[in-house]
Design a protein around this nucleic acid. Structure first.
Length: 436
RNA sequence: GUCCCCAUCGUCCAGCGGUCAGGACGCGGCCCUUUCAAGGCCGAGACCCGGGUUCGAUUCCCGGUGGGGACGCCA
């Protein structure tokens, strides 16, 4: 959440007056709450074996009935129950749900929702191990922590009535609830591991920018208004309204996230992006050490990748031609071009001894090659591209060419893997190609 | 099976009784670029079905269908 630029008012590492904030440190609170309900007869001990419960569930399902707990142990005399526990028998504590009652709550996003308690089985509140169950722990916590709003996924909507009953039983007012619809994968199944990245940290590792992720996620089920899409966290905080949230589930669209990530990469400060990108270059072996020089070199490469790559993680691959230049592959690609050999030979001659090629020098050389061969446009530039990059697509040549030479000028201790210069590459290709 | 929730382009959102049903992603085309992307412009593309209510329904109501969720000593 910090990475996304979101913060919170209270918590284990934020302080606050409603601690402790870890459930493991609140066990006493839950125990006291359960004992209370037990003594009021609003809860009871259950001795049912898990296997028996499972069999019951199956039977109910087969009979077309809601597979809820029968409430069998409800009728056990409390004194007997205490005796059995004292004798060492394992027991869970269940909440006695009031029979045949309508529970209605006003959902902040959906409006009034009503359940009849007939469909709600008595939930376990404390496991036989003494550990409180989720449904009880959250109620105790939220009541004592003075929580006002519970905003969560739609999958919790049917937990709400039983929790409301629990608030009522412990004498607390229930918070306001709002249920957001779920996020689906492309197959319309709720997003899960098999859809790929599902945790925020995975998106971070894959090279998404936090501002892109929050922005995209916020748009899943919410809109800042008429035809607006790019919004900062601060802007969202100002404009967000639960009442305006969509009621239906949304399919997660990686393509749109990618578009948004490209947008934010273009907006990001180069130094920050270079810093984010550096580890990926190291992993690819293109940067050997994270030195100032290597960081600066990576930053100088950014204009070639920003906007043409979806994620920071993809930058090294896009720039692989700088490092992994293969003369025989380059020569093959040049030969495959109609006037490839002529174009590259002329270009090689034009840059021979020209020194490092900046953008101007490159343009000059290209012009000389054009005059010498009469080739122009793709016929001229494509062979040059494949000769210098050993690849048939990539960044603009007048960006790539200076980058190659800038890298080639870097010495061994720079932290950048060795790069062959343009002149070198052209000469090697011409040599291979002219043996024909 | 039972209960609950949901339903506008392929996808994400606008719309809130009368609109040529709008935008974005993606897709197709064109332009720009002496090559790729990016960018600019143009284009194709939707109101689940059936009943009501109304002068008039995408919009309100009911039913159906479809999708999702929940029915744990998981959270």
């Amino acid at each position: 959440m910090r990475w996304l630029g979101l913060d919170w008012d209270e918590g284990p590492d934020a302080g606050g007056t409603h601690g402790p904030y870890r459930q493991s440190e609140r066990l006493e609170l839950y125990r006291a709450g359960a004992d209370d309900l037990l003594s009021q007869g609003r809860a009871y001990r259950c001795f049912c074996a898990p296997a028996a419960l499972e069999a019951e569930r199956r039977a109910a399902h087969a009979a077309g009935l809601p597979p809820k707990y029968s409430g069998r142990c409800r009728t056990i005399d409390p004194a007997d129950a205490v005796a059995r526990v004292a004798a060492g028998e394992a027991a869970a504590v269940r909440f006695a749900v009031p029979p045949d009652r309508e529970v209605t709550f006003h959902d902040l996003v959906r409006g009034d929702v009503t359940f009849n308690t007939r469909v709600i089985g008595d939930p376990v509140i404390v496991r036989s191990t003494g550990v409180p169950a989720y449904n009880f722990a959250v109620v105790v916590d939220d009541a004592r922590m003075a929580i006002t709003h519970v905003i969560r996924g739609e999958d919790h909507i049917s937990n709400t009535p039983r929790q409301i009953l629990l608030y009522e039983a412990i004498g607390a007012t229930s918070p306001a609830f709002g249920h957001l619809s779920l996020v689906l994968g492309p197959d319309h199944a709720p997003l899960s591991k098999r859809h790929g990245a599902t945790s925020v940290m995975e998106f971070r590792e894959r090279g998404y920018l936090p501002e892109a992720l929050v922005n995209y996620l916020a748009l899943l089920g919410w809109s800042p208004g008429e035809n607006e899409e790019l919004v900062s966290v601060a802007e969202m905080a100002r404009r967000f309204d639960l009442a305006a949230v969509s009621h239906s589930a949304a399919v997660f669209d990686t393509g749109k996230l990618a578009w948004m990530n490209r947008h934010y990469m273009k907006e990001a400060a180069p130094s920050r992006l270079a810093n984010d990108a550096l580890p990926y270059f190291v992993r690819a072996g293109q940067v050997t050490t994270e030195s100032d020089a290597s960081r600066a070199f990576v930053e100088s490469l950014l204009p070639m990748t920003v906007g043409s790559v979806d994620r920071v993680e993809e930058m090294p691959e896009r720039l692989a031609f700088l490092f992994a230049w293969d003369p025989s592959r380059a020569a093959d690609l040049v030969r495959a071009e109609p006037d490839g050999v002529r174009a590259v030979t002329a270009f090689g001659a034009a840059i021979a001894g020209a020194g490092p090629l900046d953008r101007e020098a490159f343009r000059t050389a290209a012009t000389r090659a054009r005059e010498a061969t009469g080739l122009k446009g793709r016929a001229l530039f494509h062979p040059i591209r494949v000769a210098l990059t050993a690849a048939d697509s990539g960044p603009e040549l007048d960006l790539a060419v200076p980058a190659i030479d800038r890298g080639a000028a870097l010495g061994p201790g720079s932290g950048v893997a060795p790069i062959r210069s343009c002149a070198d590459r052209a000469a090697a290709v011409v040599e291979r190609v002219s043996c024909l």
